[in-house]
């Protein structure tokens, strides 16, 4: 067990936990938005589920892919540094994507309401 492998394990556990929890919360409260855009209940449940699955696939895929780009870690001090930077960048990415999503949803909803 080198320092790299230990930090990979910690990194994967933390980031996948965060991604799953954030996705599930957005899935729960985003349903009303999807419902207001697509109106019919049956189809919005289906869309919401597919969106959640797509979110999980792309985000967890990205989180795992990034592992192959790490530098070699020699000390515990470096490990903590590297871990914090990597996890922070994932958090920032999630936040930015979340805000973008909210902007898109808001505008989409407005345009649909205007049409009606």
């Amino acid at each position: 067990m080198t320092y790299n492998i230990i930090s990979y394990i910690i990194y994967i556990i933390i980031t996948i936990y965060i991604t799953v929890v954030v996705g599930y919360k957005c899935y729960k409260s985003g349903y009303i938005y999807v419902l207001s855009i697509f109106i019919e209940e049956e189809i919005s449940v289906a869309i919401n589920k597919i969106l959640l699955l797509g979110y999980y696939l792309t985000n967890i895929g990205y989180v795992i892919t990034i592992i192959s780009k790490w530098k070699t870690i020699n000390t515990g001090y470096e490990m903590i540094n590297e871990l914090s930077i990597r996890i922070a960048s994932i958090l920032f990415l999630l936040a930015v994507m979340h805000y973008l999503n909210m902007i898109v949803l808001t505008f989409w909803r407005k345009s649909i309401i205007n049409k009606i």
Partner: peptide, 22 residues
């Protein structure tokens, strides 16, 4: 370590590809 890194690159990349296809 090399094994983990290669696997992560392949599986992660495949997962992103699947998401895009979805």
């Amino acid at each position: 370590q090399k094994l983990i890194e290669t696997l992560s690159y392949k599986i992660g990349g495949f997962s992103i590809y699947l998401g895009v296809m979805l």
